[in-house]
């Protein structure tokens, strides 16, 4: 079960997704390496979250295929965990029970669950909140629980679906750096979907920009920022440079969309 030393390479080949008449994205080719963090940004409705769901096998791509460590993804694979924007905590379960959920389903022995859950609750800084119910927690603490639940399954791929989008700005920043700290202690491959350009640059080794309708990969930018990343990164010239680059790519898209809208009128 332990995935220490396991790879977590993701191979996306010619993937497209279509819902009825609506083609969301197409021609997605992307390879994500071992312990690499790839951020995906794009305008809302570009299908970045759907792409993430395809990687987890929750949604099947209409064309192309996705492989993780060589195995084609047809259903949620072992060793891959998702952190959801809506937290996805079960309101009738305590923090402890929520964090234990993945291990329970995997049929882990009881003492292993107890040990792992306690360790991960502490890791995300929720020690002492084991018995709390989700409604008793702030948004930030709820997402810490969601993160602990994902990490407790000991994944080698972590899929982040705009995890901090519904959390207030200050808490978001705290959580971003805490996630980076956790990643340093146990690196794994990560796909980080976000609509925040700063977040994409701060997290990613590479930033993938989706554009167009249907959308496809417009550009992949190497951030080239050093790790471990601390708050100093935010004020470095390189960070600002990459941020500006991504911003102009997306801005261009937004302006174009606006213009098209004008023409239609």
């Amino acid at each position: 079960m332990s995935t220490n030393g396991a790879a977590g390479r993701i191979q996306i080949d010619g993937v497209a997704k279509q819902f009825g008449d609506l083609r969301v994205f197409q021609d997605i080719d992307l390879a994500i390496g071992e312990r690499e963090i790839v951020s995906i940004v794009g305008p809302s409705g570009c299908g970045k979250t759907t792409l993430l769901r395809c990687i987890d096998g929750l949604v099947q791509p209409s064309e192309g295929e996705i492989r993780i460590d060589g195995a084609k993804v047809t259903e949620p694979p072992r060793g891959v965990a998702v952190v959801f924007q809506h937290f996805g905590l079960f309101p009738w379960k305590t923090v402890y029970e929520n964090v234990a959920y993945g291990l329970r389903l995997a049929g882990a022995p009881k003492d292993q669950i107890a040990e792992s859950v306690a360790r991960h609750i502490e890791l995300v800084g929720l020690k002492g909140f084991d018995k709390a119910y989700p409604y008793q927690l702030s948004g930030g603490m709820q997402q810490r629980t969601g993160l602990a639940r994902a990490l407790a399954t000991d994944p080698h791929v972590l899929l982040m679906d705009e995890p901090f989008a519904s959390i207030d700005a200050q808490t978001r920043e705290i959580l971003q750096f805490e996630l980076l700290r956790i990643w340093e202690s146990r690196p794994m491959s990560m796909v980080f979907v976000t609509h925040s350009i700063e977040e994409a640059v701060l997290m990613g080794d590479r930033v993938v920009v989706l554009r167009g309708r249907p959308s496809s990969i417009h550009e992949v930018i190497e951030t080239g920022l050093p790790r471990p990343r601390t708050r100093d990164v935010l004020s470095s010239p390189r960070f600002n440079e990459v941020r500006e680059q991504v911003w102009s790519l997306l801005m261009h898209e937004a302006e174009q969309a606006e213009r098209e809208l004008q023409e239609v009128r």
Binding site: D56, L58, E75, P76, R78, A81, V82, F84, G88, F90, Y101, G102, L105, A106, T153
Partner: peptide
């Protein structure tokens, strides 16, 4: 909720 559960197989 169903989706979360499915993501955990």
């Amino acid at each position: 909720f169903v989706e979360v559960a499915q993501s955990y197989r």
